[in-house]
Computed example of a mutant assay.
Amino acid sequence: MNLASEFGDDRVFNTPLTEQGIVGFAIGAAFEGMRPVAEVQFADYVYPAFDQLVNEAAKARFRAGVNAKGQSCGGLVVLCKYFYVPPTSEHTNSRRYHSQSPESLFTHIPGLRVVMPRGPAQAKGLLLAAIASNDPVVFMEPKILYRAAVEYVPAESYEIPLSKAEIVKPGKDVTIISYGTPLYTCSNAIEKAEADFGCQIELIDLRTIYPWDRPTIIESVKRTGKAIVVHESMTNSGVGAEVAATIQEQCFLNLEAPVARVCGWSTHMGLIYERFNIPDVTRIYDAIKTTLDY
């Protein structure tokens, strides 16, 4: 609210609705030493800017080194809102084009950072760290939290380190790794499972999904011996596949059960019954029970 009034029209202004142009403009500004924040709004519409991000922003340092300020494309942040949002009065296009979760595409691009906060306080600290970073950052916010989350956010400036996971809840029997909105679903499933099974479950928020915090995950799984990865995007080639492969490589002799994945189904978001496509409390609860009983 009132950003243009506070900071002036030369810093806050509308641009033509062309994602390739918005991101290309931001890349040029970053090369000139500014720290632009480009708003793509829906992650579903970031694809026209994919070439700019992959072939320009991500390769800037590799191709040209850094400028006198130590920056390449530093300070470039591309904001996207991603994945499922409950139906509104809009027509079915809101589900067809506004409910995708393309984060795994960007995790395959060296030179980019990919950040996904779970709530308002995390979003502020991670966003300020992203703006300060000398790497281009794709900053993906769960759009459902714009309607669902109410949280105290300190007024003062603070940063949360990038590429550092947070142990949201300690435990000794199972490690659950997630990011974004599913952290809340996992918490609900964990509360029920701990009451029913008498177990203690560790919950970890990746926060940055590329480059992600491997040491924290590996240390946790070596202690618990069991791991479950939860995310809303599709199972096939998702972030969970990389996490599961790393756990298998680094924790093989410590594992007491296969690494489980509870993810979205490998299909388009339905025009109705959207909730059937994403992990819910029941699916996570069942995965906990199966992993404990293995």
Results as ranks from 00 to 15, higher is better:
Ala257Asn: 11
Ser237Arg: 14
Thr88His: 07
His98Arg: 03
Ala29Ser: 10
Thr208Asn: 06
Tyr184Lys: 11
Ile190Cys: 07
Leu127Thr: 07
Gly21Arg: 06
Ile167Thr: 13
Ser266Asp: 15
Ile27Cys: 15
Lys169Cys: 00
Gln250Asp: 14
Ala64Ile: 12
Arg223Ser: 08
Val243Ile: 15
Ala148Met: 14
Glu103Asn: 05
Pro136Met: 06
Arg223Thr: 08
Pro117Arg: 07
Val37Trp: 01
Glu242Gln: 05
Asp196Pro: 06
Glu156Val: 05
Tyr179Pro: 08
Tyr82Pro: 03
Ile176Met: 02
His108Met: 04
Pro211Asn: 05
Thr216Ser: 09
Ala29Lys: 13
Asp44Arg: 06
Pro279Ser: 12
Glu232Thr: 00
Asn93Ser: 15
Pro182Lys: 08
Phe7Asp: 06
Val262Leu: 00
Thr216Glu: 05
Glu141Asn: 05
Met116Pro: 03
Met269His: 03
Val262Arg: 06
Asp205Gly: 01
Ala149Trp: 11
Val37Arg: 13
Gly65His: 01
Ile288Pro: 08
Pro120Leu: 03
Ala60Val: 11
Phe31Trp: 15
Asp51Arg: 11
Val138Leu: 12
Lys172Ser: 15
Leu206Pro: 04
Leu105Val: 13
Ser104Val: 03
Cys251Ser: 09
Asp286Ala: 01
Lys59Arg: 11
Glu249Gln: 14
Thr107His: 09
Ile176Thr: 01
Ala29Pro: 03
Asp293Thr: 14
Asp293Ala: 14
Gln250Leu: 14
Arg95Asp: 10
Tyr179Asn: 10
Lys289Asp: 10
Asn134Ala: 07
Pro258Met: 10
Ile247Val: 15
Ser178Asn: 04
Pro142Lys: 00
Leu17Asp: 02
Thr290Pro: 01
Gln20Pro: 03
Asp173Val: 03
Glu274His: 14
